[in-house]
Design a protein around this nucleic acid. Structure first.
Lengths: 243, 243
DNA sequence: CAAATAGTGTCTCTCAGACAGTATTGT
DNA sequence: ACAATACTGTCTGAGAGACACTATTTG
């Protein structure tokens, strides 16, 4: 048997059919109480002119680094949570060649206006209900990303990734309401968030002034050190059984 | 601007650096009350002689199909649950070239003896605590798969994928105990499983005889139609806070 | 008979959700 | 004044877990 060194020397990477690996990012933020996703308009074939998730081919970097790079090409953002979603590899999902797309999910606070990237005619935050008819299989990827985001809010403190470093319980509630698409009872939500150990911690400060239409000044909180919420904040109003 | 057809005609897939995509499968089953993973011994470089997760290069098929094919090359199994885990793509994780591995998680009931596959010197079910020192980054992949499996038992009915079509509540409890690595209170578990709508449904029959060391005949159940458990069967004894 | 297991009853504590109520701010 | 919002109090019902208990079967 040949040694490993000899084996590697005789190995010919070109002997295999060409495949490519891309990353695509489902980047979510909340603008004006609406859950929005970052979309680009494709400048080149295939799907020129169609809206798509930001993404591109992976270079000599790791997957996480590639996702971060693609995201920063479209929008300048500071704090961002990034996690792998899943990989899409159906033959024929890209007309050029066999392309595997590793999809990522990103949560960002606030509203940095996006900038046009290299391979995109334009980039924009689009309310998720209006984000349809995307290029490739990006409709499916977006739907999977939204599922993941909605479910992760239940048992992880990731809602804090959608707000600034200091936030009020009301702002946090608005995150849940926007992502889940339903209003939450303010009083019960308040008590529940504070009852979960490590979810939020008080800064001692309050907002400078009350709400725009009245109300007392709210206390400010930071994200705590919990990695999982216990007890979880379960989504209401789901059907039992099959769901 | 060129039409999409002209663009595709002039497109040269070989202009990109060669990358490869593989699937690797974390296949779990329960043998003698122990959680076991399917491992092969690699016959070829790299990592010849080392144990590894079953897997191989993706051909012209979809990712799910590739995972199923690789699994069937190693062991003849009937009913099996298969789901994508995540993708590993660090540069340097394979010494031959840039290889992206799409990892899958499989749950299978019972104990089909594995058979040697094409690129493996042998295949065997190995208790997960003894599955260390694997080739590539398979230790990491296995650990991620176990995390996922342990967590999925909580809120999905996937425990039924580890048992036959008909099973007793005691067998189901043994699945949870094996995967979580801790004993569960028999009485409370029993009542809880039956209280979750759609988790199991009665067949009306009972086992032919009691346990080996005594006890009444147990009622037999099938998997129900629930996709999610509500309420969930939460794992006991986890630390609060950071966890 | 003794041991093991299936399944049930009951109690306590926690938590979710409904609802009401008070305090504090902006227009 | 009035509306809006931040919080807190209280009640009810569901569920988790501890424990005890009965019934059934094997050796």
């Amino acid at each position: 048997m040949a040694s490993e060194a000899e084996f590697l020397k005789g190995y010919d990477p070109g002997a295999y059919p060409a495949v490519a690996v891309t990353v695509d990012v489902v980047a979510l933020t909340i603008r004006d109480g609406e859950l929005c996703v970052l979309l680009v308009e494709r400048a080149e074939h295939p799907f020129a002119g169609r809206r798509a998730l930001p993404g591109g081919f992976v270079r000599g970097e790791g997957l996480d680094d590639a996702a971060l790079r693609e995201l920063q090409e479209e929008t300048a953002l500071g704090k961002v949570h990034l996690e792998q979603l899943r990989t899409y590899g159906d033959p024929g999902r890209d007309p050029r060649m066999r392309v595997f797309s590793v999809a990522y999910l990103a949560f960002a606070p606030g509203l940095p206006e996006p900038r046009a990237g290299s391979d995109a005619a334009g980039a924009a935050w689009v309310p998720v209900e209006q984000a349809t008819g995307l290029a490739f299989d990006h409709d499916t990827i977006l739907a999977d990303g939204l599922d993941r985001a909605r479910s992760k809010l239940e048992y992880t403190p990731l809602a804090t990734a959608f707000v600034g470093d200091e936030f009020t319980i009301g702002e946090l509630r608005q995150v849940y309401a926007s992502v889940w698409g339903e209003e939450l009872h303010a009083g019960n939500f308040h008590r529940k968030v504070l009852s979960v150990p490590g979810f939020v911690e008080s800064t001692g400060a309050t907002t400078a002034r009350g709400g725009e239409r009245g109300g007392p000044r709210a206390k400010l909180y930071r994200a705590g050190d919990a990695q999982l919420l216990h007890p979880a904040l379960l989504r209401p109003a789901r059907e039992d059984g099959v769901r």
